[in-house]
Amino acid sequence: MGNNSCVAIYRTRERLKEAVRALRRSGSDMAKVSIVGRPADGGDTVSGLYVVEERIRLLESEVPFWKSLAEELGGMAWLVKPSSRVVVGALVSLLERLAEGGKGGSETSLTEEMLYTVGATRKSARCYEKAIDSGRYLTVVHGSLPEVERAHQVLLETSPEDIAIHLA
């Protein structure tokens, strides 16, 4: 797990999907790409999608979107409780390790820990959480400095609302 990352924020699902397609077209290592967001209604009350050890439960209407992303990024997805943030892709295994290690306690959330582990500062990680909770989607590419710089070049062309490189 590289401890650097490029994080891009998107307002819409269409832009997010375009970003994932752009990364794939550019030959990026998709095993280092993740998406973080929230179900449109923020709820996890109705079961419909079980991707990783039955941890994710979403409204029926939300299933196709997250499932297609999960399939695109290696089939891993996780609904982080209690925040109802959904993580899809490579960072799911990191989330699992963090959760098993007891991270994401009262002072920090699991998603903050996850973003911190891939290079974001605490302040940035909290800003990203706010962005997610206000309906945005993150594309996170982690890896070496050249890898995240390359991802930055690719994602810059996909009109993100914000984009940054985080180095640890």
């Binding site: 974001a120 500062t121 940054a164 490189i165 180095l167 640890a168």
Partner: peptide, 16 residues
């Protein structure tokens, strides 16, 4: 401009 953050303690040679 590109926005970046570097975490406290990060050391890098100027070649980077």
């Amino acid at each position: 401009f590109r926005r970046e953050t570097w975490r406290k303690g990060r050391c890098s040679p100027s070649s980077e």
